[in-house]
Each structure stands twice: as structure tokens, then as C-alpha cells.
Design a protein around this nucleic acid. Structure first.
Lengths: 162, 162
DNA sequence: CGCCATCTTGACTTAAAAGTAAGGTTTCGG
DNA sequence: CCGAAACCTTACTTTTAAGTCAAGATGGCG
């Protein structure tokens, strides 16, 4: 049970956009990538998904970039996670045929209800948080960029462990 | 944000063991594999992890098999998930150096607290469920096995989608 | 003792996610 | 109308998780 890389980067990217929005700015891919600490190619893929899902709007050409498609106060985290949750696979039981309730364990499976409930709990918790609510503790785009630039490079492949 | 295959199979395997326990039985790898609809090789790997973590006890040789290391009423789902959560990677931010609080976004990152809180919510929810609580709605081992055997084979690679 | 059933262990293969690269398209500004 | 800035799209590579295989170790039972 963990958050995927796309989910985490997507949340943070949207938060950066929300922050930029308060200053009437949009953010280019390169800028988002630097803010996130990922490659522009990777950021491009991410933003394309968010764009397709209608969470952000893109503007091509000079002076282009991304901005939120809706007010930050109207974007709830559960929607973001839902969009980025890779293919939304939620159960792995190989005895499941793809048709709801047609798992051979149906009726005998005490685990599936737990998974469903778990998903609802997470969704409820995230649905109560909007991007604008997270803005309070955030620094400005420029401050973050400056901090990142003044930090020495490090390996890309290190993951946070708890 | 999804449950991994190991987590799901592990939960169900432990539930099968809890059910067997009520009849004073232990379960062999082959039996667990059939109950789960996975290969014995895969089940072996899974059970070895649970064994190493002290959740189950194994007995080799004739009349061997697995049984719960503790009463089902004493095994909470959060412990199971924790053991099976692959390497327990919980954040993907590549600007994170592996030392707690040393992410370049620290202090500017509004997302990490959300992830931490989310994890706690899930853990709390799971910590209130024990294996024995799930037993109520379960059929007997024999009933499940019979049902599985009477079901036609199907592709292994189909995943549940919601 | 010796054999069989069973778990153990590590190496290997396959499948999925993450990340990269490159060429194409659109827009703006001169 | 041209060129640079910026996004779009597809294909490819790398990494990680999932699943398989086979040889080894262990315990029970005749």
C-alpha cells in the first residue's frame, strides 16, 4: 500500500501550479521539472496526463506553459490521485475474471471487502483536502527554485524509506 | 495508491490459516496455493516472508505445513500489510536523500505531510481489524476448495479494475 | 536407515512501472 | 513569414515487482 511516483509528483506539480496561480503566473515544463527535481521529459509525460484529465490547461508556443484548469479551492486531492493511479488496478486476485463479483472467492473472501473499505477511507480523507488548503505552508516559487539551485546534485534513485 | 499483489495474497493466506486453525489444522503450500489460485512456487515465496516476519510457523516433512504463530484474534491487519509492503517505500521524491527531513523540499513541501497522514489513516483503520474478526463471513476450507475445483480454469493475468 | 512429503533458498524469467529520447506541432514576436 | 520557445506524441530503455524453477535441507514414518 503505497503512493506511486506519478501520484506524488503529480500532487506536488499541481501544488506548484496553484502557488504560481496566486501570482497570476503559469509554469513551463522546464520550470516544473526543476521544481520537482525530475527530468523535463518525465514532467512532460506527467503533465500530459493531468492535461488530458482536465486538471490543467496548457498553452503552447512562446509564453506558453501550464496552469490549473480550475481554482485551487476546487481541486480535491482524491481526484488527482484517482487520475494518476496507474490504470486503477485495485485487486490482484488472479481468480478474479474481470466481471464484478465473479471472483471464485466471492462470498468466501473476507479480504475483498477490506480492500474496498480501505479504498473508501483513503478517498474520503483525500476528498477533504483541496490544493488551496495546502498553499498556506508553502513558500513562493522563486524561493523554492533558489533553494534547489543552491543544493548540490544527488543520485536520482534514492527513495524515502520509513 | 493501491494494494500490492503480495499484500492481497498474504492477507488472504493468513485468513485461510486462521480458518484452518479453528479446525486444528495446518495448511501445506500446495493447499494454500490452490486456495489462492496462485502457483505453489509463488505461495512458497509469500509464506517464507510471513514466516520470517513471525506471523506464521512452518513445519517441514510429512504432516508439515503452516499455521498461525499467534491466535487469529491477536493478528491485526496493519501488521500484515507492514510486513508485506515491498521494502516499505512510501515516498518517491527524488530530491529526498534518504535521511529523514533532508528532502530539498522540506519546509516548502506541502505534499509530504499529506502522504504521512494518509499512511497513518490507513494504518489506523487496519489496526482495528483482526483476522478473527474476518472469520465470521468465511466458509470452511473444504467448501472453498470444492468451489475452486469445480470452476473452469481462467487466464492468470486478469486484474480487477474499478 | 531410507524414502517421501514438505519447506527453504537463490537464481532466473517475465511483466509492469518509471523514466528517457527524439521528432513533430503550435504559438508568439519580430 | 520566419525562427525560437514551448508543448505533444510515440517509441524506446531502464528499473522494479511479480512470478517461476530447480536444487537443497529437514522431519516423519515405516
Amino acid at each position: 500500500m503505497k503512493i506511486s511516483a506519478q501520484e506524488e509528483y503529480g500532487l506536488r506539480a499541481l501544488l506548484q501550479l496553484a502557488r504560481a496561480e496566486t501570482q497570476g503566473e503559469s509554469l513551463t515544463l522546464g520550470r516544473i521539472a526543476r521544481l520537482e527535481g525530475i527530468s523535463t521529459a518525465n514532467a512532460g509525460k506527467l503533465m500530459w496526463i493531468l492535461n488530458k484529465a482536465g486538471l490543467v490547461q496548457s498553452q503552447r508556443g512562446t509564453k506558453g506553459g501550464y496552469r490549473l484548469a480550475r481554482p485551487a479551492s476546487d481541486i480535491h486531492l482524491n481526484e488527482v490521485i484517482s487520475v494518476l493511479d496507474n490504470e486503477r488496478v485495485e485487486a490482484h486476485c488472479k481468480s478474479y475474471t474481470g466481471v464484478l463479483d465473479s471472483c471464485v472467492h466471492t462470498g468466501d473472501c473476507g479480504i475483498r471487502p477490506v480492500i474496498v473499505e480501505l479504498h473508501q477511507i483513503v478517498d474520503n480523507a483525500l476528498s477533504e483536502i483541496t490544493l488551496s488548503q495546502l498553499l498556506g505552508t508553502e513558500a513562493t516559487v522563486d524561493a523554492v527554485l533558489h533553494k534547489i539551485q543552491s543544493t548540490k546534485p544527488r543520485a536520482e534513485s534514492i527513495h524515502a524509506q520509513v
